[in-house]
Design a protein around this nucleic acid. Sequence first.
DNA 1: GCCAACGTTGGC
DNA 2: GCCAACGTTGGC
Length: 137
Amino acid sequence: MRYWLFKSEPDVFGWDDLVAKGKSGEEWDGVRNYQARNNMREMKKGDRGFFYHSNKGKEIVGIVEVIAEAHPDSTTDDARWECVDVRAVKPVKTPVSLDQAKEDERLKDMALVTNTRLSVQPVSEAEWNVVMELAGM
DNA sequence: GCCAACGTTGGC
DNA sequence: GCCAACGTTGGC
């Protein structure tokens, strides 16, 4: 199983919105970036990911699970773009902010810190464990 | 709301 | 195939 991180602006589609979708989850659509798309193509059903609020909050607020592997993005006719489906698993006990991630030596290579504009990123197992620890999980 | 960083597009 | 122009993301 691999780990990922999904960014979303809470004003557009936040953690609460995903929770409201329940077990059937939601398409992670609208990604128009090749790197992010390639990451989604590598996802397998059952992979876990962090849900990060960009712009407002700037913190990891929850844990999601990939429930459907890459398929065409229903929001465009452009065959280049694909997306996966995710569902909310549970909120973190304590949100982990971008500042915390920046300050933690163990997370200095995390894509969240080094590649701020990438909206779907891989998370290493070591990074996952550090964030989980910071989140009080 | 600004702007830096980055990705993409298109002219040459 | 280079690079200038442009668009978008996201931190501040």
